[in-house]
Design a protein around this nucleic acid. Structure first.
Lengths: 387, 387
DNA sequence: CCCCGCCCTGAATCGAATC
DNA sequence: GGATTCGATTCAGGGCGGG
């Protein structure tokens, strides 16, 4: 870093290692008291180590630049102190929370499923490209589409044109990007993985680069590891400088830069909501039944929490406009290898033919609304006959 | 707090004020340099203030208790230092992120849309009730259902029994609850609001109480403000102690405890907790049918929009623990002057006697969950008979 | 009592099979 | 034949057991 000129880079991202190993080796060597002492020593060393480098980073960062510090869960407070000291409290911009879902375990307590990234600027003239996210589901659509004005008493209301109609305002971008980022954790099977242990998803770096730099700007990663920052920067037309003490890291970064691989994630493409379309419908039909939702299988909708002779019980709800025969076939197909002895199909429409296509493991039940309307219809028919 | 005995409370929740006012008044009076100095002074005072109280809290907390510290965004690192000092680093359990969507402003930078709650225990025997959330949208059922094994090369695959069928495991409740909690911010118009500035949503406190205490346990809130903690605790059958220096706060807390109001957030409709039970049952049962809710009649719950031979059709749902005979009687009473020729009573529990008390205008229909459990029970009986 | 390594778990991609 | 579906797979956190 010493080779870099003053105020020469636009953005710095770093994800330095936290010395947990060192701490552990020390703990095994000495008694408990020493373990504590040593661990504290290590922390002080660690902070000194970080601060020395932060001073250099502050020097090479441009006046309108910003720095993103990716923290270990155990050191966030130490790092924020160091940052306050070297960049100044008044330049603390955001505490970014990167949240993700990950393979679970049965630990006592809550699942750790976030990491912290501190954003600091060098001055309040820092460069920032506003990004937008979609509106909350509960936002009133009128609010987005209609222009608002204020009357004489400064009371806000929808603006009205000369014909008395509300004025529709187009292309509202959305809500300014939140500081909580839900970005999938790099999956064990992802092609994007290159074998480096703490590899970060490209999308995370892309977002950081997007909000803080323009095309042609420069990015520094002083602990570049597998080189994710460099790959993201080069794909986005930014210059980048990566530094790492390990030769291995430099090699991986080089090879990744030559052949960048980005995961084509379906989840990222279509978004989480795409999976959840029928959720509310389901929960209202299955109210009072203890179940687990099944998201990714067209033949099954829910798994009951109770069992029948130790075999799972599934539920499926007939789709609107779907023939009952089709529904049974789909369900039967999905049940093939699941070892279920009883499962339930809930019919929501009267079938137009007798059920001659029944299946041994599937019980067809009428939804309540169907029972009610059926019952009314039969009463009416009786009434007609009586008349 | 000094009146409380050692190790006497199970959980402590606190959300103390951060001294921003003092800091600001100082900053406006003096030049920039002084502003800094003074602000630091204030921070040290603040930390001393917090630490003194944390020591008392540590004293009154039970051995298996835990503490939840709701932090101001500007002081998270200071607070974590104080907590590490007084509770011990090894008792740091979780950094809980409460995220919400809020009304946007056009500030430069990311929208602040989270707050931090630190969870510390007094020992590693802390009480913890595991809560579960639903599986990810991308999880497939086979993983939940099927046992896996490893071959000689330690490669994982689904286990197969001697008949070549996959082995079904026990059902799971879901994934252990994450440390990132998406709970709607108290809407400015919400009924739940009682005018206190930093009021927290009941749901947030309910979750904290749920994971850390059992019925009959005690909760202390030493900065109780508007008393949300006390309201949540009393609704959940826990004892609670609230302390506040402001008489106003104590008054508000008292009145809220007498008349608790909870917002039914539309965002949480899908979650079973937030749902008004009878409303939800109705919407489930009447899914796909047009109806009007009947609010203040013990004998009737809804009026269908369709009619039977020009006479109204009513719906009633059997109450939990209510005998079917009682239900019919109540309904019949309410129907007396309504001129209905067909109405429906939805049974939610199997009746212990044959219905010899039927009523000409009332049709009894089984709820869906009852149909399913009844069907399972009869299958099991058949199986027994066959054996 | 501590440490190492095996085991269980589930997110999300992969990729074969199916539509 | 392109898109979709869904069974299979990998890997790391943390528990637990054995040395």
């Amino acid at each position: 870093m010493q080779d870099l000129r003053d105020e020469s880079v636009n953005t710095i991202y770093l994800d330095p290692p936290f010395m947990t190993n060192k701490k552990q080796s020390l703990s095994s060597r000495d008694g408990e008291h020493f373990y504590y002492e040593d661990s504290w020593e290590t922390k002080e060393d660690y902070i000194r180590f970080i601060e020395e480098r932060l001073i250099e980073m502050h020097r090479v960062l441009r006046h309108d630049g910003s720095l993103f510090f990716h923290c270990d869960r155990n050191a966030t407070h130490l790092i924020r102190f160091a940052l306050d000291k070297i960049f100044g409290e008044e330049n603390f911009i955001s505490e970014i929370i990167w949240t993700y879902r990950r393979w679970s375990n049965s630990k006592k307590g809550l699942m750790n499923s976030h990491q912290t990234i501190y954003m600091y600027s060098k001055s309040d003239e820092f460069k920032f490209n506003q990004m937008y996210q979609s509106y909350s589901e509960t936002t009133n659509i009128d609010q987005i589409l209609q222009l608002r004005s204020r009357d004489a008493n400064n009371k806000a209301s929808y603006a009205i044109d000369k014909d008395g109609k509300t004025i529709v305002k187009n292309n509202k971008a959305g809500v300014p990007l939140s500081d909580v980022w839900d970005i999938p954790f790099l999956n064990p099977k992802a092609k994007e993985r290159c074998g480096y242990p703490t590899q970060k998803p490209l999308l995370l770096l892309e977002r950081i680069i997007e909000i803080s730099t323009d095309v042609g700007d420069s990015i520094l990663d002083p602990f570049c590891g597998s080189g994710t920052t460099l790959v993201a920067a080069s794909q986005m037309g930014r210059f980048s400088i990566g530094i790492d003490i390990a030769q291995e890291a430099v090699d991986i970064s080089r090879s990744r830069l030559e052949k960048p691989v980005k995961t084509e994630s379906r989840l990222l493409e279509v978004g989480r909501d795409a999976y959840n379309q029928s959720l509310s419908e389901l929960s209202s039909i299955l109210y009072g039944i203890d179940y687990t939702l099944i998201q990714r299988n067209k033949g099954l909708d829910a798994l009951l929490s109770s069992k029948y002779s130790d075999k799972p019980i599934f539920i499926r709800i007939q789709r609107q406009g779907e023939d009952l025969r089709q529904a049974i076939q789909k369900m039967a197909l999905s049940l093939r290898n699941k070892g279920s002895e009883v499962s339930f199909l809930i019919a929501i429409e009267p079938s137009n033919s007798l059920i001659d296509y029944s299946h041994p493991n599937i019980v067809v039940i009428n939804s309540l609304s169907m029972s009610i309307s059926g019952s009314i219809a039969s009463k009416q028919n009786n009434a007609k006959v009586l008349m």
